[in-house]
Amino acid sequence: MGKIAGGRRSRSSGDDPAGSDLYGSGGPDEAVAFIAETSRELSKIAERHGLETLRHLLDMTQLEAAQWLRNKRRLS
């Protein structure tokens, strides 16, 4: 995995600009579910390392994603 300044991965010239291979090609529901799950796991890591502000932000991200999914299902 290549890195550039700022900790971002460098992209090869053949990469899909939308990142569909890495993050899936599903719609917004899939993306929000992925964000909710990933932010929950990252929050656990932040807590384990005493990164309370980062943990709090990740928890808020998870809550927002879960709320979005609940609202979406309620409207369907």
Rank of each mutant, 00 (worst) to 15 (best):
G2H: 06
A5V: 10
G6Y: 09
G6W: 04
G6H: 08
G7I: 00
G7S: 03
G7F: 00
R8D: 07
R8G: 06
R9L: 09
S10K: 05
S10L: 09
R11W: 08
S12Q: 12
S12R: 09
G14D: 13
G14F: 12
D16L: 08
D16N: 11
P17K: 10
P17H: 14
A18V: 05
A18T: 07
D21Q: 11
L22H: 09
L22S: 10
Y23V: 03
G24Q: 05
S25P: 01
S25Y: 01
S25F: 03
P28C: 12
D29N: 12
D29Q: 11
D29R: 15
E30S: 14
A31W: 07
V32I: 13
V32N: 01
V32L: 11
A33Q: 09
F34L: 13
F34K: 07
F34Y: 11
I35C: 11
I35Q: 04
A36K: 06
E37H: 04
T38D: 11
T38W: 06
T38N: 11
R40F: 03
R40E: 14
E41R: 13
L42S: 10
L42R: 14
S43P: 01
S43Q: 10
I45Y: 09
A46R: 00
E47T: 08
E47M: 05
R48A: 15
G50Q: 04
G50M: 03
G50I: 02
L51E: 11
T53M: 07
L54G: 04
L54V: 07
R55C: 06
H56K: 12
H56P: 00
D59S: 07
D59W: 00
M60V: 05
M60E: 15
T61V: 02
Q62N: 13
A66E: 15
A66V: 06
Q67R: 04
W68V: 01
W68Q: 02
L69E: 01
R70C: 06
N71Q: 11
K72V: 06
K72M: 10
R73I: 12
R74Y: 02
R74Q: 07
R74F: 04
L75V: 04
L75R: 03
L75M: 05
S76D: 12
S76W: 04
S76M: 14
